[in-house]
């Protein structure tokens, strides 16, 4: 099997996996970074969102050849101690119900606010529309993104 080299949460990693294995499963099963979640496998639910060189991407749809030499950030690496402003906002608003989608929501929100630190309501909704929350905690996700934007501004 081919070998791939890339950075995860600042650390250089080398993995030996089949060339069609999506980054999601490399993270979860081979690197024991289970914070990134599987929801649909076809890039429609957003649970598997990570940052690739700072851009939010669906890790279920990224093969390792697309990741080779790149830098990946997962929920585990967003901050050392949960102190990223988006994580703090999530905590202050007490967003989660079951909590399964929230890592993906946080990764989408953090990449979005990095690009657009002062979004309006429509921009937030558009940015977050690719992330499903089956418990429908959407009002709180929205409020947390708004709150995080004030923290990041």
């Amino acid at each position: 099997m081919p070998t791939y080299q890339f950075k995860v949460n600042g650390e250089s990693r080398t993995v030996d996996v089949s060339e069609d294995m999506p980054l999601l499963w490399v993270l979860r099963d081979h690197l024991d970074l289970a914070g990134t979640k599987y929801g649909c496998g076809i890039a429609l639910c957003g649970s598997c969102t990570v940052h690739l060189d700072g851009i939010a991407v669906r890790s279920c749809a990224l093969t390792m050849s697309m990741v080779e030499g790149k830098s990946i950030t997962t929920i585990e690496g967003l901050s050392k101690d949960g102190s990223h402003p988006v994580q703090e906002a999530w905590k202050e608003i007490d967003v989660p119900q079951c909590g399964y989608c929230q890592a993906g929501q946080i990764m989408t929100a953090s990449a979005f606010l990095e690009k657009n630190p002062n979004p309006n309501a429509e921009e937030i909704k558009e940015a977050m529309d690719g992330n499903i929350c089956r418990c429908a905690s959407y009002s709180r996700i929205f409020k947390a993104v708004e709150l995080a934007s004030t923290k990041m501004a």
Binding site: K37, W90, P96
Partner: peptide, 20 residues
């Protein structure tokens, strides 16, 4: 607040799918 909030927002393995 949800007693698992810190684990959820930092991606700790809490769920069945994370069990190994």
């Amino acid at each position: 607040a949800n007693v698992d909030i810190d684990e959820i927002i930092t991606g700790k393995p809490l769920f069945g799918s994370d069990y190994k």
